[in-house]
């Protein structure tokens, strides 16, 4: 299919899914005429009509609640939450309804909906529009969680999310929309739920996802100049978590680092570090290092914002320390 952007790959995934499946509907604030706050759903309303691309009032709890009801009755709703920072507004429908319905009803019915949203820093959006809240979702049994880092995954993870029988929270990164790359729309880099290993080295393993994948790659390039060869694991989905791939590489390298933009305390990095420590203890030569967001709100100032989350330099420095 050639070169495209993360944003266009997402739009293509929605368009292709809607063409294939008449039960797919988009529902959210400004998804229709406006085209989405970040332009992902641009012109889909022209292609599929206002019956399938539905502009909603600003009512996050009920957008998600309506998606739950629609999913229970045979539709495949893709609800959009403009910023993941608003997920607190929807947490009742997400955690108490969507995540629990299959279990509470004894497996008779599931909620095959997607909640598409975006998070992360990079646009001076401030404390209420820059967070990385994937831990809230990962902490809730009954929810799937996908976090694409690449153009290919923007397309394939989203298309495959629309085939999942359970609710999927799909968190994009606001700093990635304009990034570009090759898209082969026939072949994903890995099946849904499996990690991808874009770089393989013997000296340490960097486990990451979303934008931090790109920072890890930049760091690995620097490290290679110093003779340190890193393996990079892009998790792609946090539920399911592909612990097998992590274990395989950590056992081989003996050094592991986890990189996440979410805050350090009780976050995704903490969970990953604990899992690696438990599962690979006998193979580890150092404690697992967490490189994560600082335990602070995100500032508008670009300088402060940049230093709130891991940078390629920080990742490289930590790796050097680990291997020194």
């Amino acid at each position: 299919m050639g070169k495209t952007t993360y944003r266009d790959a997402l739009r293509q995934a929605l368009s292709d899914s809607m063409t294939t499946d008449p039960n797919v509907v988009l529902i959210g604030e400004e998804v229709g005429r406006y085209g989405g706050a970040y332009g992902v759903t641009k012109s889909l309303i022209d292609e599929f009509g206002p019956e399938r691309v539905i502009d909603t009032p600003i009512s996050e709890p009920s957008i998600v609640g309506a998606a739950v009801g629609a999913a229970m009755s045979g539709l495949r709703p893709v609800a959009e939450l403009m910023y993941v920072d608003f997920i607190g507004m929807t947490m009742d429908q997400l955690a108490n309804q969507a995540a629990k319905i299959r279990y509470m009803f004894g497996g008779q019915i599931g909620v095959p909906m997607i909640l598409r949203t975006q998070g992360g820093t990079g646009r001076s959006a401030g404390a209420q529009h820059s967070q990385s809240l994937e831990a809230y979702v990962m902490h809730t049994p009954g929810l799937r969680l996908a976090m694409p880092a690449t153009v290919s995954d923007a397309y394939h993870l989203l298309r495959q999310s629309l085939a999942q029988p359970d609710p999927v929270v799909f968190i994009e990164h606001k700093a990635l929309y304009a990034t570009s790359g090759e898209l082969d729309d026939q072949t994903p880099v890995a099946p849904w739920g499996k990690a991808h290993v874009p770089r393989q080295g013997d000296d340490l393993v960097i486990v990451t996802y979303s934008r931090q994948l790109h920072y890890a790659i930049l760091a690995a390039d620097k490290l290679a100049k110093d003779g340190i060869e890193a393996t990079i694991i892009d998790l792609r989905t946090l539920n399911p978590l592909d612990i097998d791939t992590i274990r395989t590489h950590v056992e081989r390298c003996g050094h592991a680092m986890v990189v996440s933009e979410g805050v350090m305390t009780a976050g995704v990095a903490a969970e990953l570090a604990a899992r690696i420590s438990e599962e690979c203890f006998d193979f580890l030569e150092n404690p697992v290092i967490r490189i994560a967001g600082e335990d602070i709100p995100i500032s508008v100032s670009p300088l402060l914002e940049t230093n709130s989350v891991p940078t390629p330099e920080l990742i490289a420095d930590a790796a050097r320390m680990m291997r020194s």
Binding site: G74, R102, G142, P165, P240
Partner: peptide, 18 residues
Amino acid sequence: FTDILLPVSAGTAASTEA
């Protein structure tokens, strides 16, 4: 441990009853 999540699907779209 049953009825929490079904196994992951490998397809790209499905309108099966949930």
